[in-house]
Nucleic acid binder design. Structure first.
Length: 583
RNA sequence: CGGGCUGUGGCGCAGUUUGGUAGCGCACCUGCUUUGGGAGCAGGGGGUCCUCGGUUCAAAUCCGAGCAGCCCGACCA
């Protein structure tokens, strides 16, 4: 394509609204424009990248035996009510009514539609297994869209669904998709890690996320420095810690004198509503404090007990409770529902209807500090086993931190941030059961189809690629995702130069390469800067200076390397350079 | 949904404290010169100053309400 007839609105300055590199650069490179927060148009250059990602995904899905379909973006509420997710999805789903007051949503995902498609047609075990996928725009009313394509309200996703007879079939299908995903991200030139994940609202038994490591990532990931353990911190568990306080706690249990020596005391702690305030006021280590986190789970009051220096992991808490809706209690709710005041709530003598769940680390605490359920007072010398009678369970509720022991090998965990570009789930029979998608097995018995679901955020992959591949001059596309492979810059206005450029352009195009010709009437600096900003892997400069010697100048975007090539062998040389660039 | 910041030409911003009829850089158009890393000179076009209401002789500026965008948090396949 010739830039003189292209729509490439590059920006010299960084748009004020964009925070992270991929957002800034995609705007500056004229790839995307936003219509509203989290809603984007993909301009010609940007859409080419999207299509490159789609094509790689498509090829690998096809290779894995999956079949491409296209499902409706507009879905009826009925199927969501059947699966129970009409309520569960909450405000994340964009809903509307047609002229007849019939309820619809814009598909945030397609498990229900898949179940509907197959339930009427799949009758026998002989019809299974198979795998359907689509590449389509998904719509989710994100609470807070941000970071450009990274978290948008409308985004392109590849979603695949496997349908199997049993768990064994699902395991195979899951592994097949896992392998396909590894190939997809490798081909995209992305450095990804696979981590164990929480399956969240999707339900199901097993789940892995494919993560691109990047500082701007919204997910925290725990990696073991010694073994291959890797998990999203939402799910990551810490191994057992052999601590001295743990040992002494059991000793204390056997020593009634120790308990007596440490009777509960109420201390005046005016305005100390945070752990930090308390540390300053009574000089106790946060490790000796019990944080009491008040939540409302499906409209019932619950509290989580966490050591003062730990963070509550809401996913673990929610999973333990089996709750659908879990939210922090609002301060206004404290007096009535928790019999206390925000900032001073504690587990000792709470109203009886409140469920108490404690992190396993609470078990080994003694002479701890916690809220007194009375404004401006805390309790000291609290021993959980003696003083908190209604603890429903001790379980791991805390978020793992760097340095925590690995659950697999005991080595130290480290925390890195990552961008979730793919997520695979073993759904099991959650949707097939509720929506009656069944088949008859060899014995003529009706069985629910066993499903898996597999997503790749296509637009997010493009953004993640920019996060991982850019420098101070702009984007540095990995060759497989580059919108064009080569850009030719004729400099000056001599007809020899433009003729040579035109010839090379034709030659490269005939050779099947994707080529841009910057034939705009712009100064050299403008052309150089734009070429580097949009990140084309190979830049060919043609100017009278080198043309006199029958040479073209090459710059490799990634390395910055520059050298000359002979005009006569240019196109063969360029092809060779591109092949090398793939490796 | 809570906290903070911001809305002035396509982009980046000043002007708001102290009210007086809108400005700078970039981009854009015309001409001349220039032409290998975001050109120079001259001339020119473009703005409901987010919206609505109020105060005032007079509002970008003061007051009230609303809307939008961004950041932090909450939340979120």
């Amino acid at each position: 394509m010739k830039l003189s007839n292209y729509y490439l609105p590059t920006l010299r300055e960084v748009p004020a609204d964009a925070e992270i590199p991929s957002h800034q650069l995609m705007l500056r490179a004229g790839m995307i424009r936003s219509l509203s927060a989290g809603i984007y148009s993909y301009l010609p250059l940007g859409y080419r990248v999207i299509r490159k990602v789609e094509q790689i995904v498509r090829e690998e899905m096809d290779r894995s035996g999956a079949l491409e379909v296209l499902m409706p973006a507009m879905q009826i509420a009925d199927i969501w009510k059947e699966s129970g997710r009409w309520e569960e999805f909450g405000p994340l789903m964009v809903r509307f009514k047609d002229r007849n007051e019939r309820e619809y949503c814009l598909g945030p995902t397609h498990e229900e539609v898949i179940a509907d498609i197959v339930r009427d047609e799949v009758r026998s075990y002989k019809d299974l297994p198979f795998n359907l996928y689509q590449i389509q725009t998904k719509v989710r009313d994100e609470i807070r869209p941000r970071f450009g394509l990274m978290r948008a309200k409308e985004f392109i996703m590849k979603d695949a669904y496997t349908l199997d007879r049993d768990e064994e079939g699902l395991d195979k299908a899951y592994q097949n998709m896992y392998d396909a995903y590894v190939r997809v991200f490798e081909r995209c030139g992305l450095d990804t890690r696979v981590v164990e994940a929480d399956s969240g609202a999707m339900g199901g038994s097993g789940s892995h996320e494919f993560m691109v490591l990047a500082d701007s990532g919204e997910d925290d990931l725990a990696f073991c420095t010694d073994c291959d353990y890797a998990a999203n911190v939402e799910r990551a568990e810490a191994g057992l810690e052999i601590s001295s306080s743990g040992a002494s706690a059991s000793a204390a249990d056997n020593d009634p004198a120790a308990d007596e020596a440490a009777a509960i005391e109420k201390v005046h702690t005016p305005d100390a509503t945070t752990i930090e305030d308390l540390v300053n006021m009574i000089e106790v280590s946060p490790k000796k404090m019990i944080k009491t986190m008040a939540y409302v789970a499906d409209d019932k009051p619950v509290v989580a007990l966490i050591r003062g220096d730990d963070q509550l992991n809401e996913v673990k808490f929610r999973n333990h409770l089996g709750a659908i809706e879990l939210r922090p209690a609002h301060p206004d709710e404290f007096p009535e529902r928790f019999g206390s005041v925000a900032g001073f709530i504690g587990p000792v003598d709470l109203p009886e209807d409140i469920k108490i769940v404690a992190d396993s680390r609470i078990q080994e605490l003694e002479q701890a500090v916690t809220g007194a359920n009375q404004k401006d007072y805390h309790l000291v010398n609290v021993n959980p086993h003696r003083d908190i009678k209604e603890i429903e369970a001790f379980t791991e509720l805390r978020t793992v931190q760097a340095g925590d022991p690995c659950p697999k090998c005991g080595g130290a965990l480290e925390i890195k941030s990552g961008i979730e570009v793919g997520h695979i789930f073993k759904l099991g029979t959650k949707y097939s059961s509720s929506m009656e998608a069944t088949y008859l097995d060899e014995n003529g018995r009706e069985q629910p189809i066993v499903m898996g679901s597999y997503g790749i955020g296509v637009t997010r992959v493009a953004a993640a690629a920019v996060e991982q591949h850019h420098d101070e001059r702009g984007i540095v596309w990995p060759l497989p995702l580059a919108p064009y492979q080569v850009i030719i810059l004729p400099l000056g206005n001599s007809s020899e130069v433009s003729q040579a450029a035109e010839e090379l352009y034709q030659e490269l195009q005939d050779a099947g390469l994707e080529v841009l010709l910057d034939d705009r009437d712009e100064r050299a600096g403008v052309k150089f800067n734009d070429a580097e900003l949009i990140g084309i892997p190979l830049r060919i400069t043609i100017g009278s200076r080198s043309l006199e010697k029958e040479e073209f100048e090459v710059q490799i975007r990634r390395s910055g390397e520059e050298f000359n090539i002979d005009r006569s062998t240019a196109s063969a040389e360029i092809k060779k350079l591109l092949e090398e660039e793939i490796e």
